[in-house]
Design a binder for these strands. Structure first.
Lengths: 238, 238
DNA sequence: CGAACTTTGTGCGGCTCCGCACGGAACCTC
DNA sequence: GAGGTTCCGTGCGGAGCCGCACAAAGTTCG
């Protein structure tokens, strides 16, 4: 799932790669390289989206929150395999979720209207719809993990999904940040990380988690990792 | 959210209602009235979908399962406001989920290829994409509920979503069925139902739950019900 | 009407995670 | 290098749900 190349035409993001030249004027000419600092709020709940982001590095996170704003949970994780602003592909300009940069990185952004224009091109629309489908499969499996897995396994799953989207094996994140994503206590993350460390799967230091044994993490998650990834692979190959 | 009318052109299903006449030959002529017996499997994981279902009554349920098939959870609930087979709208023919009839009812079905033809019509495609969007918001909020709510609140949320989709106030379901949807013990459902009963919100008898106090149920769920419903209302009015 | 089956009620020990709380370690700033 | 800030480690009592198990009540069918 790792793609290394960088460039000026959207290279480095898998949704933009290998798209037909017909999109050059409609879309690629309008892509604007941006950096994605940690904590940047990309989309606010129920407010019109102005820019679509295509990461080439780093991780952004889609957070569902309840009506009273007192509960929130990560519902989707997006890296260079994907995009923000999927609701535009679905024909609307806003969603009730919040989207923020979870792990700093880089990418391109595009005005939402430019994307709307470009969606007239069938190959692009189909590709982005396929991505929206895999993202919603990912969300469904997050619902599954939240209901059925113990905290250490959920943490392992999250680390795997994150690892898929970064270069190298080091995730720069605090326990506190993770606890919000997983919807648990910060102390719970600390303890669960120790469990993973005890099995030699990761090494945690202040603000950083190094993945040591991917295979081991996958075993720990026991079948609750990989289905959305397989769906992505099925639809995005070619 | 209640729609009562029945007919021969898809009336009774809110996605099919008030669509332009241009779709008559492409789609409405091919709609086939069907009954939806409880337990009917509408879609199998990773197998091509042959028919799309538009319920006019009853409830169908989209279930996400892990790779090893030993864990499953309801990821989406669909009634006469929606449809099965959303992956066809997204441009593919299969998904890793299973779809079954949860509460017996009626509806129309359509060959998947007929839907593919009809999607060429912009108004239909936009409407169905909007629905897919709200369904994925629903899934995200299921992930939220699974992570943050206690069992009695999750049960209340499920009953509310179900109540939105049926006529009357009686849900015909066993505790066992519910426990599978919620991913918990059957005995846990029994106890939680007693809690709801104790507060006068529902009345449970063998194989049946009667909703007595919707407002009370909504209060019990505390802001974790209603966001997907509001998104549906926003996009589907007109 | 009695037997077989389905559904619901209840209990018990145990694990997981919660809320709360505090101390210590690492890092940053002046 | 002193002081503040952020981050991490740990502990305690308790709530919630688990797995397991069994009894009772309702339903179906011969």
């Amino acid at each position: 799932m790792k793609v290394e190349e960088k460039g000026t035409r959207g290279e480095g993001n898998q949704l933009l790669a290998r798209m037909p030249a017909a999109l050059a004027d409609l879309m690629f000419a309008h892509l604007e390289p941006v950096s994605l600092p940690q904590g940047l709020v990309i989309e606010q709940p129920n407010e019109p989206v102005e820019h679509i982001y295509f990461p080439t590095g780093g991780v952004i996170s889609i957070v569902a929150m309840n009506g009273e704003g007192n509960a929130q949970i990560e519902a989707g994780l997006v890296g260079r395999e994907g995009m923000s602003g999927t609701m535009v592909v679905m024909g609307t300009d806003r969603s009730p979720h919040q989207t923020t940069v979870q792990i700093a990185g880089t990418g391109y952004r595009l005005e939402a209207d430019r994307l709307r224009d470009a969606l007239e091109q069938e190959p692009l629309r189909e590709r982005l719809l396929h991505y929206c489908h895999t993202l919603s499969v990912q969300t469904a499996h997050t619902a599954l993990a939240n209901a059925k897995l113990k905290l250490d396994a959920r943490l392992a799953r999250w680390l795997l999904m994150c690892h898929d989207r970064i270069d190298g094996d080091e995730v720069m994140l605090t326990h506190d940040f993770l606890s919000i994503m997983l919807g648990v206590r910060r102390a719970g993350v600390t303890v669960s990380l120790h469990i993973l460390e005890g099995q030699g799967l990761v090494r945690a230091t202040r603000g950083q988690i190094r993945i040591l044994n991917r295979r081991g993490l996958e075993e720990m998650v026991g079948g609750c990792y990989g289905v959305p990834e397989a769906e992505y692979a099925r639809l995005m190959r070619d």
